[in-house]
């Protein structure tokens, strides 16, 4: 079947099988920033924004996104500029192996879009479906806090 999806601000059409997942479609179409870690919605490495909300793309059938909007980690940069969250992840050492990073950034993007001034607990909750085995989450929470601060025009932490 054919579907039309807006991905990272570009309107695209794909030919898909009705049983394939959004994760499979995106990786096949070259969005390799979307990572496969478990295929059961437990690790969050495959997270993308679907109509602005972060979801596990392994738990979404590609057919379902027909007519909807998807943003992957590749779409977070704007005009060649890194997003504040991406900069903050680099500055705080929140990236180690980087495999969970795209999903983590997507979850954090959803959070900040709906809650521009989250508490530490809300930050942790927002990324609680994104597993990371390298960092212990310490620096990722720090990174999101730093991004919040910068986006509100405050001083660097």
């Amino acid at each position: 079947m054919k579907i039309a999806v807006k991905i990272n601000d570009v309107q695209r059409e794909f030919s898909i099988t009705p049983g394939e997942t959004l994760l499979e479609l995106l990786r096949r179409e070259g969005y390799k920033g979307v990572k496969k870690g478990c295929e059961t919605g437990d690790c969050g490495a495959c997270a993308v924004l679907l109509d602005g909300r972060a979801v596990n793309s392994c738990l979404v059938l590609a057919a379902k996104v027909d007519g909807h909007t998807v943003v992957t980690v590749e779409g977070l940069e704007k005009n060649g500029e890194l997003a504040p969250l991406q900069e903050a992840f680099l500055d705080t050492g929140a990236v180690q192996c980087g495999y969970c990073t795209p999903g983590m950034l997507i979850a954090a993007t959803d959070l900040l879009a709906h809650n521009p001034d989250p508490s530490e607990e809300e930050i942790k909750e927002a990324i609680s479906g994104n597993l990371c085995r390298c960092t212990g989450y310490v620096k990722q929470v720090e990174a999101i806090k730093l991004a919040v601060q910068r986006m509100r025009g405050g001083e660097d932490a």
Binding site: G41, A47, A54, V55, V60, D110, S128
Partner: peptide
Amino acid sequence: LRQVASPLQRNL
């Protein structure tokens, strides 16, 4: 609901 699954899953 805050204790159900993860935010990623709750969005779906």
